[in-house]
């Protein structure tokens, strides 16, 4: 299927999005923004799956379903992560990731 846009473009877009997420994960200090970075990363992976599916194996639906399941996993991950964040907030009265270092040596 020719949409006029090569596959490579999708992949480059996804790579940029992915590493934007990684940058956010590394620099952000607020746990919720870190969670947002993770969502970015997951979304970029989804774009990859869908693009591969459409361009390389249009007769199958593997990538389609995989991204569907990734969305479901992302949803449950977000729910649990937020629960953990709220619990951390309750215990340390902060959600700054640098202050949560009880597990150091």
């Amino acid at each position: 299927m020719n949409t006029g846009v090569p596959l490579i473009y999708f992949l480059i877009l996804a790579a940029i999005m992915f590493f934007a997420g990684v940058y956010g994960f590394l620099t952000r200090r607020n746990l919720i923004t870190i969670l947002m970075s993770v969502e970015l990363i997951l979304n970029s992976v989804n774009i990859n799956f869908v693009a591969y599916n459409r361009y390389l194996y249009p007769h199958k639906l593997e990538g389609f379903f995989f991204s569907l399941f990734v969305i479901a996993v992302a949803a449950s991950e977000a729910a649990v992560a937020i629960a953990i964040i709220i619990n951390i907030y309750r215990r340390f009265t902060t959600i700054n990731v640098e202050d949560v270092d009880t597990m150091r040596y």
Partner: peptide, 17 residues
């Protein structure tokens, strides 16, 4: 080497990435 175990999540991730 215990200084590596800093409890700083982002340092771990940095090393990992």
């Amino acid at each position: 080497i215990r200084g590596f175990q800093s409890g700083q999540l982002q340092k771990y991730v940095y090393v990992f990435i």
